[in-house]
């Protein structure tokens, strides 16, 4: 799929609309944007010395850990399918989901949208940055800041998310929980 200014505009509008559905808590409508084969993944960051660091002299270079993001087979904050996300939404519907009762008030800010063609002509890769602001209760405030890498699939007039990798910038999360969607 060729990247054009029109396509960029269309994808930006899609991402903004998606953010509005989340902030309006229209989660079932949001779920309609998720592809059947979705992988929705939020790996974890950690503090590592880079390979050129003079703070450390490795005993065994092979076991020096320089990658600051967990890998696919390791721990993640979220590692979801469409089905598990829908179960999370059904949990919110139950009337017993105390982390969201009373609900969070959220605001998603999406920026730095860039498109990149993929090998699949029906799909496009979209990079974006986000701030998810959450306030809850009397004076709780959390900022979840990071980047996303999406693969979006053209389905008729609209798009579906088939892959979303969410990378938060924090290593130790300062929020007491992650009960919203990104």
């Amino acid at each position: 799929m060729q990247v054009t200014p029109d396509l960029l505009r269309e994808i930006e509008q899609f991402l903004y609309r998606e953010a509005r559905l989340l902030d309006n808590r229209q989660f079932h409508r949001w779920a309609e944007l998720l592809a059947e084969d979705l992988r929705y993944w939020m790996p974890m960051r950690s503090n590592r010395y880079p390979a050129n660091s003079k703070a450390i002299a490795s005993l065994d270079e092979a076991h020096q850990e320089t990658h600051d993001l967990t890998e696919a087979h390791e721990l993640a904050v979220m590692d979801e399918t469409r089905e598990s996300l829908i179960r999370r939404i059904e949990r919110l519907d139950s009337g017993f989901a105390w982390a969201e009762d009373p609900p969070s008030r959220t605001r998603h800010f999406i920026s730095n949208v860039e498109l990149e063609p993929t090998e699949n002509p029906a799909e496009i890769r979209a990079y974006s940055n986000f701030i998810l602001y959450r306030t809850r209760g009397e004076r709780e405030e959390d900022f979840y800041v990071g980047s996303r890498e999406d693969i979006l699939r053209r389905t008729g007039e609209t798009w579906q998310i088939t892959y979303r990798k969410i990378v938060l910038d924090q290593s130790v999360l300062s929020a007491k929980n992650v009960s919203n969607f990104f």
């Binding site: 950690s46 503090n47 590592r48 703070a55 002299a57 490795s58 850990e65 320089t66």
Partner: peptide
């Protein structure tokens, strides 16, 4: 300052 890794020495 790192969470984990491998070291002969740390400075």
């Amino acid at each position: 300052r790192a969470e984990s890794g491998n070291a002969a020495t740390i400075t």
